[in-house]
Design a protein around this nucleic acid. Structure first.
Lengths: 133, 133
DNA sequence: GTAAGACTACTCGGATAACCTCTGTCCGAGTAAGTATGG
DNA sequence: CCATACTTACTCGGACAGAGGTTATCCGAGTAGTCTTAC
């Protein structure tokens, strides 16, 4: 079990955008991809997921690109991760022994501890303290 | 990102063994597999991982099978899960911008919250409260 | 000088290929209990 | 009787096949600035 590489890219891109000196102007995929050493087409695919969830704005055409929406400071890690990984539970009891599988209960409870922590943290928190790289 | 099915089987098998009325006598793979609707050969493959980590004892030959070791009550969920999934971190910053990737720090911190919870819980805790199925 | 059209630099999104891990099967080897056999 | 060999019911472990999801590429379509051209 691992977080996907897509999540990795998504989080780093969000940080990149947040650290931009010109927050209003969109940044092109090529530039974003270059800094992370990913192919632009693939990164664009990941970013459109974020756009659909409203965590990134995109502008088409010349001088277009991606930028953060007005409410970006409230976006939590959890929201970004779930936009990429999906919102399904990490553990599903595979075999039907009633609704209240005690093992599943323990697992879900643990998962919620992690989510709770991720919900607290925002990209904005990181920008305040450090710079990337 | 999901917990693998192997982890699912491992946890359920541990619970099965813990709930056995004859804790000393080993239970055969076939019987264990039957209750979970898995193929015996595959389940055996998973269980040998647990044997190597000392969380299950195995007895070869006729009347052989798997049973819990003497210290089974101290085995936590986390140990079982890590025996199957491995002990690697869920998140690795893929690209080398120094050792202290702030994103990785946040992720690891969240992961530790989950592990902390899983370390607290043991199979023995479940046996005390409920019966399976 | 200005309006219309062509051009260009982008994102968007579907189709598809490559790859890797998880899942599952097969089979031969080793092991220990029970059983038959021969003296 | 008793020891030896055989049979049987298991686990062990490597090799390998299949499936599904992630990762990545390609390409056509849409969009919005910019440049060109003609009047």
């Amino acid at each position: 079990m691992k977080f996907s590489r897509g999540t990795n890219y998504a989080l780093h891109t969000m940080l990149q955008l947040a650290q931009s000196s010109t927050p209003n102007k969109p940044i092109g995929v090529q530039q974003l991809a270059e800094q992370q050493d990913v192919s632009p087409t693939y990164l664009s695919k990941i970013l459109t997921k974020l756009v659909k969830e409203g965590m990134v704005s995109s502008v088409s055409g010349v001088k277009g690109g991606y930028s953060l929406p007005y409410n970006w400071e409230t976006i939590s890690f959890l929201e970004i991760i779930q936009a990429i990984e999906g919102k399904a539970s990490l553990f599903d009891c595979h075999f039907g022994h009633g609704p209240g599988c005690p093992i599943e209960q323990v697992m879900v409870e643990a998962e919620e501890k992690m989510e709770e922590q991720l919900r607290k943290m925002t990209i904005a928190d990181l920008v305040k303290n450090k710079t990337m790289n």
